[in-house]
Simulated scan of single mutants.
Amino acid sequence: MQQPELEMANDKGSWTIVSEQGVVQENGDLIVFSGDVKARNQQQKITLDTQELRFRSDTNIASSPGSVDLEFESGKTRAGALEADLDKGILTLEKGVKSEFDAPAS
């Protein structure tokens, strides 16, 4: 697919994923987004940028084997790999994780 866009929703809000290219594999259970991949969650004010994002629709798990940049309302995180269980709301970051957060003024 060229310039695919996928929107998913759960109780934690909706995610929109866009990329330069996409491939559907394993009878639709795996979608591989590649190129300039951007995922956004407006409700939680989270953005994710990477070069490859794999979404498994059978388990509702998204992963990126390469570097990932995450931006939150109060900071940002960079990691060498990511796995997100969208049903459980668990985010696992690996390989040189670095976070910067804005401390609230007292």
Rank of each mutant, 00 (worst) to 15 (best):
L6R: 08
L91S: 08
T77C: 11
L53H: 03
G66R: 14
L91T: 12
L91M: 14
M8L: 15
Q44F: 11
D11Y: 13
D87G: 11
F72N: 10
E5F: 07
L82R: 12
G96S: 06
S57Y: 05
E73T: 05
V37K: 04
G75C: 06
L53I: 01
L93Y: 11
K38Y: 04
T47P: 01
K95I: 04
L30P: 02
E5N: 00
G80Y: 00
S19I: 03
L82P: 11
L86W: 14
S34C: 07
D58L: 11
Q42V: 15
E94F: 10
R56M: 01
L48S: 12
V18L: 07
M8N: 10
V18Q: 14
V23G: 01
Q21Y: 13
G96A: 10
G66K: 14
L30Y: 02
S64C: 00
M8H: 08
I17P: 06
F33A: 06
L93E: 09
F55P: 02
A9T: 15
E71G: 01
K76C: 03
N60C: 03
A84Q: 11
V68G: 08
N60I: 03
S64G: 01
G13Q: 04
N10E: 10
G28R: 15
A39H: 08
I17G: 03
N27R: 10
G13A: 14
A9C: 14
V23T: 09
L48M: 14
I90N: 04
A84C: 04
T92Y: 04
I90V: 14
K45V: 03
I31G: 00
E52C: 00
L53V: 02
N60R: 12
L93N: 11
S63I: 00
E52H: 00
A39T: 06
S63R: 00
S67R: 09
